[in-house]
Write a protein that binds this DNA or RNA. Structure first.
Lengths: 225, 225
DNA sequence: AAAAAAAGTTAACATATGTATACTTTAAAT
DNA sequence: ATTTAAAGTATACATATGTTAACTTTTTTT
């Protein structure tokens, strides 16, 4: 019997790392894998768990870039010849545990340069992230803060959503300060004001600190595109 | 006599296209090279001129992505196997004329796949754009509209700036509506209000419809980072 | 040259968001 | 179990930005 397996790009990468016996490291909730600005000679690939990457501005505010909740390369913004070895972002573990493959940056790029399939993975990785980022930029620039919150809530469905009878349960706890950091809102109380409006309009409910999205169409209508 | 030339990546690409006798097309001011959403089987490389790319939202508003004022690939968001052949952006000519190399998308990617130097170019292209985009996202999310305008004006120095006695002349006409489209401001009158404040504070002057930046530090102080 | 369209300017008022504070509830640390 | 820190909520007021309108100036079209 022949079983034909078609691997996705990321599955191929994970297999490759496993076969090359790349070491794994495991980190606990709310610890940091990397700090923005610190020198770092490793590339990390998330195996399982949930992480958030963010940037701390000079004035102390935190800009949240993204959650990553499935296997993915954490950051490829530096390549083998980049003069800067600064980590571009903070990476904080948001699940109880997260596991990462840890490869020397130079070794990682050796793998890539020797393997056309991995080259293709990297090309697609960049193109996909760039495309997502342009879209997000558009959404953030062309909407007010309410639109930003609605867009953010909408994006949570794809990341953490589970369909239940009366809508979509976001099966992950997101605080008002988190939302503020993603949407560029100045305080948790401002976030709360908007969330209150959404609750009053029957768009969302909160149960055990988790959002339930009851009216996806309302969210979409708030997002310019 | 041997002259050793070290070409930058983009110079190498331009040479390559020239050697392969890739046809050029010339377009006039305020005409469109491509329209967002229309199918397009060519890849374009700006040879000379100034272009603006933008996206028209469903509600009719225009989101301005960037000016490009020196040789560059116009858009690599689609590759040879992308199912979608939609153009991701509008591309409008903003100089009197602009010249482009025009290559079939499939041919362009053939060139790339056959040539490691071009592969490297593409990789760096993506990484650079991604990195710029993340930075711009941060700037737009973490600033108010005034910060957005100051950041935008600051970016014009690199694009069109010429040092003069009393500051930097932005040697290119940018309208209030253009600024609105870049910064997500709803009307030219709102843009004008902020520009008036900047004029009153001695940050900028306007001469023959062109900005003169007199106080760069003021602009930088307005931009969170 | 005249007419029309696009762009700049200002003002008045409406609405969204920031800021500060106080208090309550929940989670984390001791 | 107790204490402390973090997070949610609500309110009042300040400020930034949106919206509309009117008018002026400049550019483009006829």
């Amino acid at each position: 019997m022949i079983i034909k397996m078609v691997l996705t790009d990321i599955e191929y990468l994970m297999n490759y790392l496993e076969e090359h016996q790349v070491p794994k490291i495991k980190k606990k909730r709310h610890t940091y894998l990397t700090y923005h600005g610190l020198s770092e000679h490793y590339t990390y690939i998330l195996k399982d768990g949930i992480i958030k990457n963010s940037i701390i501005l000079k004035d102390g505010r935190e800009f949240n870039l993204s959650y990553i909740a499935k296997p993915d390369v954490i950051s490829l913004l530096r390549d083998e010849v980049s003069r800067s070895t600064d980590q571009p972002f903070n990476v904080r573990i948001e699940s109880d545990y997260a596991t990462f493959y840890q490869v020397k940056r130079v070794t990682f790029w050796d793998y890539v340069n020797r393997n056309p399939k991995l080259q293709n993975y990297v090309k697609n990785y960049y193109r996909k992230k760039l495309s997502e980022n342009i879209f997000r930029l558009q959404r953030m620039v062309m909407n007010g803060k309410k639109g930003a919150i609605c867009g953010f809530l909408y994006s949570l469905i794809d990341l953490f959503g589970r369909k239940i009878e009366n809508g979509w349960l976001i099966d992950f706890i997101v605080t008002n300060d988190d939302i503020a950091g993603f949407c560029g809102i100045s305080s948790r109380s401002s976030v709360n004001r908007t969330l209150k409006d959404l609750r009053n309009d029957g768009v969302i409910t909160i149960k055990n600190h988790k959002f339930i999205i009851q009216d996806i169409n309302y969210l979409m209508d708030q997002i310019a595109n």
